[in-house]
């Protein structure tokens, strides 16, 4: 079970003055059950890339295999693929439209051709999974707070029972607590529903805290691909392309320069704390 991208290229508006080579020769393997972060500055190709994964955009050249099958084969059920690879766009709450939350979440599974009963069952499970209190389910989605609306929108995608869940900046515009709540929920879903999660984010701290594998996009190419601490070790190269490392990583480099023997590759608060305490204990002895 995996997604494989084999030398994928995508060119926008080919043959016009606006031609843009948005993805250049991308080859990637996304294994089942991974928790992946994608970072990159605006226009680096992140969104174009994720829209390839569920066939919303068709590559100009190259191939994409979902569980071993070429999704560009004649007769490949792209409709089904879109149920299996669920994509939550930026500001998904703008896509809510039904009169009640529950009806809104039923929309996806009903569209997949499920009966009313089956769709309701799926909606029930999805709303449970995103942790939205049951007393809200039959209210209008428009009366909810920003964070709650976003959960409903994510539930709408989850109700289609995806094997892969892609979230494009799920925390944009949320307050710090709302950010943590959504991300913790995503971690829980990853663990309990055994789904692959791909998180597109502009927050270096968030990806450092949550993902196991980090892909950096730049000018339509994969610039780095590895565990966060490896990737953030290249912080100067990241800065050159409009990104950065988590704040604590910079701190560790500063401390090192001042002679403290701390671990420079720390990317999370916990790692930094442990390393600083260790370095100071050793120093004072």
């Amino acid at each position: 079970m995996s997604i494989i991208l084999d030398h994928v290229n995508y060119v926008y508006s080919a043959g016009t003055a606006y031609e843009k080579h948005a993805l250049k020769d991308i080859s990637l393997k996304i294994e089942d059950g991974q928790f992946i972060g994608i970072i990159g500055h605006t226009g680096s190709g992140k969104s174009t890339l994720i829209q390839h994964l569920n066939g919303l955009i068709r590559a100009t050249s190259g191939a994409i295999y979902y569980n071993g099958e070429d999704i560009y084969d004649k007769g490949y059920p792209l409709q089904k693929l879109r149920g299996k690879v669920g994509l939550v766009f930026q500001y998904p709450e703008h896509q809510l439209f039904e009169t009640t939350i529950f009806k809104d979440v039923c929309f996806g599974p009903k569209n997949q051709g499920l009966s009313q009963n089956e769709a309701e069952l799926k909606a029930f499970e999805a709303l449970r999974a995103v942790g939205l209190s049951e007393r809200l389910w039959y209210q209008s989605p428009f009366d909810l707070s920003g964070g709650q609306k976003r959960r409903v929108a994510i539930a709408g995608v989850l109700a289609m029972k995806p094997e892969v869940l892609i979230l494009d900046e799920p925390t944009a515009g949320l307050d710090p607590k709302g950010r943590d709540e959504i991300l913790d929920q995503v971690v829980r879903m990853h663990r309990e529903l055994h789904i692959t999660v791909i998180l597109v984010s502009h927050s270096m701290e968030d990806v450092a805290n949550y993902v196991g594998r980090l892909i950096v996009m730049n000018r339509g190419q994969v610039m780095f691909d590895g565990v966060p601490r490896e990737v953030f070790a290249h912080y100067q190269e990241l800065e050159a392309v409009g990104l950065s490392a988590p704040q604590v990583t910079y701190l560790m480099h500063d401390l090192r320069r001042r002679g403290l023997s701390v671990d420079e590759s720390a990317t999370t608060l916990e790692e930094a704390k442990a390393s600083i305490l260790r370095a100071l204990q050793v120093g004072s002895k």
Partner: peptide
Amino acid sequence: RLDVPQITLLADELRKAGLAVPKGILTRQ
């Protein structure tokens, strides 16, 4: 439902762990 900058939070954690770090550290420097 708010937070503090990551550096401030780290300083706070270090203080709780017993280091003589003052409250309200704001910057890396």
